[in-house]
Design a protein around this nucleic acid. Sequence first.
DNA 1: TTGTATGCGTTATCAT
DNA 2: ATGATAACGCATACAA
Lengths: 322, 322
Amino acid sequence: MTNIKEIAKRAGVSPSTVSRALSGKGYVSEEKKRRVLAVAEEFDYAPNLNALSLKTGITRRLGLVAPAFIESVSLFTGGFVRAAEENGYTVTLFMTGSDVSKEVEALEALRRKQVDALVFVMFKSDLSLIASYTKYGPIVSWQRIIHPNIPSVFMNQYDGYTIALEHLYARGYRRICNIYGSPTRLNTQSRIDAFRDFCAKYELDPLACPSFDDMGNPSHGEQMVRWWLENGQIPDAFATTNDRVAAGMVAEARRLGLRIPEDFAVCGFDNLDFADMLDLTTIHYPVNEQAGNAFSIIRSRIEEIELPLRPLKFHLVQRSTT
Amino acid sequence: MTNIKEIAKRAGVSPSTVSRALSGKGYVSEEKKRRVLAVAEEFDYAPNLNALSLKTGITRRLGLVAPAFIESVSLFTGGFVRAAEENGYTVTLFMTGSDVSKEVEALEALRRKQVDALVFVMFKSDLSLIASYTKYGPIVSWQRIIHPNIPSVFMNQYDGYTIALEHLYARGYRRICNIYGSPTRLNTQSRIDAFRDFCAKYELDPLACPSFDDMGNPSHGEQMVRWWLENGQIPDAFATTNDRVAAGMVAEARRLGLRIPEDFAVCGFDNLDFADMLDLTTIHYPVNEQAGNAFSIIRSRIEEIELPLRPLKFHLVQRSTT
DNA sequence: TTGTATGCGTTATCAT
DNA sequence: ATGATAACGCATACAA
């Protein structure tokens, strides 16, 4: 509504003086400063951020790109928004539904200067496509990738998965069945490596139980329980790709009258909210801290400063399913 | 980087012709249009949205204000973002942690034209404070309030709660204990009314069991189970304020070796994701649709058009806890 | 159909 | 210490 020129007229000074008085940059006499501030107050002045963005080329807005706002994505979003707001940035959402064309829209928003930088929580586009937009602003990824221009705040799940396996071993389980996620993900490969090394260490047969790929939903967990019943009930423990699969197993086992951990143990991964409600043993994945690091990387690039990253560690949360 | 003036020079036309060619508004010959488009493509032209916002006074950005991004808030956010993006709007997040000063920051963002409108998912500020910002743009609320300038997309929970009570009655429960949320919320009052009318209809004594106020977390649910054990085990069913409290009850009952629904029944409210995993009977609350309506109200005000709102209905989701 | 000129609100540069 | 002026990138009223 009311702009700097208006305030200048009312206060009997020039627009530049008003600008200086309000921003605190540059010289301005105490008397005029007081007058300007009073007039600005009186006429309900508020700076127009679009003009500022145009002038400076900086929006202090960051884009967050995710397929949907469920569970761990929400957790990441919360952590990222908190870090951003603490430092005077604002976060704009881009929800893709795993649709590549929507991902491009987010990239275009960066190109058109709607945001200063982007964080991709999860994506499907070719890495090279995303990388071609880094010339418009910093881009970081949560999803584990390796690219010279796109830092990723991933954690190597080798360590976390090893914690799960060691825990199961310590509890006496020897016939462990692995339920993996997407085989194309680097994290899946890390888990496979962890299991191989674990078996070698304790001289277990890695092929004693079959493994399963591409699991991720509660329904997959339910499926696994039925598989267990119908195929000799061999495994005495399941190490799962995430808490959702584990939750599906727990729910289905209960419906079928099976007892956990007596019939078989289940270990989740992530430690989402509902893991507590289901009393699920799981591996805590510090999503909040990863989000904070994602922001720090972005900020350090935008403001050209060095910022420390918080070290990240998995840990076991033991509950009643093991 | 490259702007309209630059393209104009390269294409041998005036900036306004470029503007017209790119926007499709106004007359421009086919030949020049082709030339301009080719040059724009070649020089990687992208319009600067900040300049556009400054010029037009419209950002096509909406602010969403919420305390944190957990559970039903995430659900609402997802629905709102989807609706917004489908219509060419973008959503910026303001996370308040229930801190009033953070809510003011969101209001200020509206005043400073960083966003065109705001939706308050939940808030603590005085309604009059929020209302004083409606002169800067539309503001709508999910939280149930009544104010002439701030539409709310609430649903009257009288209906939903009645569905829960009728279901419990039909399943044979007669000693129903109400676990309410914050007593200052209008929705709590609606539920109290629903229970009163329900008791009258079936000639039940409304005071047969005590009611509880201000519950909301799983820990409150755990507390309720212990209360039940220590105080004569009177109620045969609990109608809870939300799924989180219900989940706490289910988890604690399991730990204590109680059987649900034999020892007592539990009915949740909301039908969040984990309700399915816990096999919780609950009342489905169409959050997505409410978010869509919130967006429609905002859009109708911004674009000054009439938009229909989707009718909303609760329904029962019967699972194994009743 | 096209081009010129102006303004959106702000800040930075440069005189004064 | 202060003010005039230009510039950020775009759209549009108006003239041609």
